[in-house]
């Protein structure tokens, strides 16, 4: 089979102890064998490890932060596109998704394709909206309360019992055992990610996750449930294993069908002792552990790229159960010259 030449711009090269999905996405795309790939890395910070990982990217460009707005984002994308001619853009960070979604028309005019949820899907699954979302689609969710200032913390309903989860709009989640901890987490999270900060009831049980891909017409192209085996102090999986849980698969399929979800997603669920599932969060993109799904037989990045190009992709119907991953860290030697290039010129 002839390989399809394809230039893909990928962000989320922050392969740190709190990794972005960029590097695993690139790894999966390269292993697909369907494409003749040119990978353009998009980085925000000078020390994102992906910038320096040989063989991963063909070029790397620094991007203005999403908080700079759509105009700055598009200016930079135009500059990069002039040099690299991007076919598909894969944003991997929650904070940039909104900016990319509202730029879809302009990106289309540049010939750049994306495969993302609609703005409506994106908005209604926001942490601050999750309760309404659960109600609408018949899924149990823990009660939550949006906090926009320290004085709001006093208004948290009395029947919210400690411990509580305190979560940022895009990232960060901390457990709080008393009001002082809520205040301290609020201050830290709001300083970085803005408001509202979400205070959520804590549900006791086992954390299980599903990675999934919807085609935008209600079909689930792939879905793999995983249980985290080891969680870092940042709440990230350090080890995980695919599990056989038809309830989770059904939940995912029903949700994707009801919402007509388009693009990658990760559902974070808590399974209680009584076997009930609570939806904690929907991340509107493939998660950093996406390579586990590839290892278990579902190359979702490949399917996503093909769908971005307008191809119809048959759904994956099975995956290997008991497939396991363990993450590791590695000290890579970096040439000071590369650091100089990315920090001075904003590109390598």
């Amino acid at each position: 089979m002839n390989k399809l030449p394809l230039t893909v711009a990928v962000s989320g090269l922050n392969n740190t102890d709190n990794p972005g999905p960029g590097i695993p996405f690139i790894r999966a795309a390269k292993e697909s064998g369907r494409f003749e790939l040119k990978i353009i890395g998009l980085a925000y910070e000078n020390l994102e490890p992906g910038i320096y990982m040989r063989g991963m990217t063909d070029a790397v460009y620094k991007m203005p932060y999403p908080s700079e707005g759509k105009v700055a984002f598009l200016d930079r994308i135009r500059y990069i596109n002039d040099k690299e001619n991007i076919d598909v853009l894969i944003p991997n960070l929650d904070a940039e998704l909104h900016t990319v979604m509202i730029s879809e028309k302009e990106l289309g005019e540049l010939g750049i394709k994306t495969f993302l949820p609609t703005l409506k899907q994106f908005e209604e699954r926001h942490k601050s909206e999750l309760e309404k979302f659960g109600e609408k689609y018949g899924i149990k969710v823990p009660r939550s309360f949006p906090v926009s200032s320290v004085s709001d913390i006093n208004r948290i309903p009395k029947d919210f019992d400690f411990p509580l989860m305190v979560k940022g709009k895009f990232y960060d989640a901390h457990i709080a055992y008393n009001k002082e901890q809520v205040i301290s987490h609020f201050n830290k999270i709001s300083a970085q990610w803005g408001v509202p900060v979400i205070v959520q009831e804590f549900i006791k049980g086992t954390e299980v996750n599903v990675i999934a891909l919807g085609d935008g017409e209600g079909n689930t192209i792939g879905a793999v449930p995983m249980r985290k085996q080891y969680i870092t102090d940042k709440g990230k999986a350090w080890g995980g294993i695919t599990i056989s849980d038809q309830n989770m698969i059904d939940l995912t399929r029903n949700l994707i069908a009801a919402v007509k979800w388009r693009g990658g997603m990760e559902m974070e669920l808590i399974k209680t002792i009584n076997g009930e599932y609570y939806l904690i969060e929907i991340n509107p993109r493939l998660p950093a552990w996406l390579y586990l799904a590839v290892g278990a037989g579902q190359n979702l990045p490949e399917a996503m790229l093909l769908m971005a190009l307008g191809e119809k992709v048959p759904p994956y119907t099975s995956y290997d159960i008991g497939k396991m991953f363990v993450r590791y860290s590695y000290d890579m030697m970096v040439d000071l010259d590369d650091f100089q290039k990315i920090s001075m010129n904003g590109e390598i």
Binding site: L336, F339, Q340, S343, M344, N345
Partner: peptide, 13 residues
């Protein structure tokens, strides 16, 4: 020449 300065003593750039 690019305007990049490395202070070998402190490790700052």
């Amino acid at each position: 020449d690019t305007g990049f300065v490395f202070d070998a003593n402190s490790g700052e750039s």
